[in-house]
Design a protein around this nucleic acid. Structure first.
Lengths: 205, 205, 205, 205
DNA sequence: TATGAATGAGCCTTCATTCAT
DNA sequence: CATGAATGAAGGCTCATTCAT
């Protein structure tokens, strides 16, 4: 893998192409599996020769890493921005779930790859940043849930269960959401939030 | 792959060993990934040579198939048994989630492998039975949810969302449940059910 | 690379085959170069398939390592045995050169590979044992030369130069010796020794 | 590979750069091996891009050829010049060894590459000139040794052995000589010559 | 039943080389 | 002259699978 070009004009083209590749790879990996997709397949899908990918990535695992980082890195800032200026714990949860579902839905392929390769990411130095990103976000969700504890609108008795349930349902959205389906990301998010916190007044379903 | 022994005494030993193998394989596949686990690794973990596995299974994919079937086949009957004799929709849901979570927790490794290899199972003739099993169970869950629609205790407005949320949270349990942890499968199941249907009286959280 | 067989009968066959392979590899590497010889070439030369070599060796470098060790390990003991019971410094040098040349001539291919891949062996943890073996032998030669310093029969003024000259000439023998040529290893060794130490009486050529 | 520039001013710069490249390549090849050094490495070491090398050389093998020719071509004339006007066979040998060692020491990297890639050079039309150059020089050495045969100062009985020993020791100098070491090229050359021919009067060591 | 030698296809990766800019 | 994107042919290695013992 050669160093990226330094001249800005070329650098831009280079980065664009690299991004294209990451996205295409995420798609293929999500559909056919990371291990079942050969680098040759990938390259062919992009109309370049087998060796061409290595101009942009050190290897297959580096590609996977980029996919994961493209998924995890922007989520936390996005969540913080959504929480900004909101005080009501229930509203905060709703806002959080809203951007979260949106993010998952926009990165469906990334999500599926991420889940599929869980066993790889769980271990090894290389994945430390990815794990850290996921952990930080989960802690944020947990904190928002904590603010709801004791709130009469909260529909969960155990925060650990609520957190895991939320993680499970939101992440699983990647597997069934259809862009042109009946339900929008926003509606789904609202539906999820409804399960955890009562709407409007104090406590009624 | 030679035919299994016919003499009952030998057949029993054979079946026991085959079962051992499926379980060991599920464990390894869950931990290290299906593709990252070689047949030699697997065999070594059982103290036999690489070729030995082929006395019990036609191949690696057949092993995966058995893992999936061990997971999906017993679930439906188990769920039916739990629903047997119950009429109240809320109680039915609670009973269903209870056995379901128990099943997932008892087959954690199977579950993780199943999710991981989703893209394989999704396609191909060989996996038809597995897909059918999953579908049948999901339809059962959907039916139970349908009975709750309109019920004042129900906490969901859209059944599709509720179903997917439930699938997401329950299946995800395989990833975080710890056998000696604070929460039992029963408690977790109750917590999940609470999110979908109010407890006891009509409607209060 | 699987573990070697444990049953002695099989182990013997295994070791024999492994040895065959090392020798064949040394021959090919010497003739065509280590890098220019592919594992497929090697295997083809032995009448086995490409992957077959990996039953005996972890990889190409492990093969090279074995070649080097087959060369360096037996030399020191062999030299010690030849020196055993000799006291006269000149006779000691002659005896040493004699076994040394014999060893080089019997391991011509190993020698040529060793010299060719000098730059690889010079560095890296893996080659420590090989380097140590070479160093120990050179120290032995140096010690024998040291006993000759001041001896009127010695034909060198500087021991460092004599040592390097000797190393150069003996090792280079691998490149030009012909088994059915006019000169035997013994004659060559005597000729080399003559250059460093006068024969018989004090000083005449 | 484009034609070299014809305008003298440009041509000079071009030749200087080409020479730089050959020297840099010799250094890298000697240290890391011909095959282990990629054209990209080479170019990077010179601060140019991979493709840039091809403005000066047809390819990697052409580069190796230039290294070999830079080594072999000047040696013969240099040796002839040193022998010019000398008649005493012993003095002729000393003079020859002196320039030879000097040449080897000044072209250490070239020498090491040459030895390393012996198996390539040994074969093929392309290397005919290189082989011829080496052969011609060896014949010159042999002729000088021939004049010493029968001379009471000569310390060798067999010319073939003496020639090979000399070739071995002198060429091996490239591997151990250190420019700032205790021994100069001249001293080393004298030490080598001493092994083959007695100093001054008839026969004393 | 089990072993272990062997196969052969396929994979990831490297790299000399070309060429449009 | 130089760049850097791209190629395409190997190369080393892994591994599911087979089969004689």
């Amino acid at each position: 893998m050669p160093a990226p070009p330094t001249r800005p004009a070329l650098r831009e083209r280079y980065d664009r192409r690299a991004d294209e590749l990451v996205r295409a790879a995420a798609e293929r990996f999500a559909r056919d599996g990371y291990d079942q997709t050969s680098m040759a397949d990938l390259a062919a899908g992009l109309g370049i020769a087998a060796g061409g990918v290595y101009h942009y990535f050190g290897g297959k695992e580096a590609l996977l890493e980029r996919i994961c980082l493209q998924l995890t890195e922007p989520l936390h800032p996005r969540a913080l921005a959504a929480l900004e200026g909101r005080d009501d714990p229930a509203a905060r949860l709703r806002a959080l779930v809203d951007v979260w579902v949106a993010h998952v839905v926009e990165h469906r392929d990334h999500m599926l790859v991420f889940q599929q390769e869980r066993h790889v990411i769980e271990r090894g130095e290389r994945w430390r940043a990815v794990r850290a990103g996921r952990k930080r976000f989960e802690e944020l969700v947990d904190a928002v849930l904590a603010d709801l504890e004791g709130d009469p609108r909260a529909r969960f008795a155990d925060r650990r269960i609520a957190l895991s349930a939320l993680l499970g349902m939101v992440n699983h959205t990647a597997a069934w959401f259809r862009p042109r389906g009946r339900l929008s990301a926003r509606e789904i998010a609202a539906g999820y939030a409804d399960l955890l916190v009562g709407r409007g007044d104090g406590g009624a379903a």
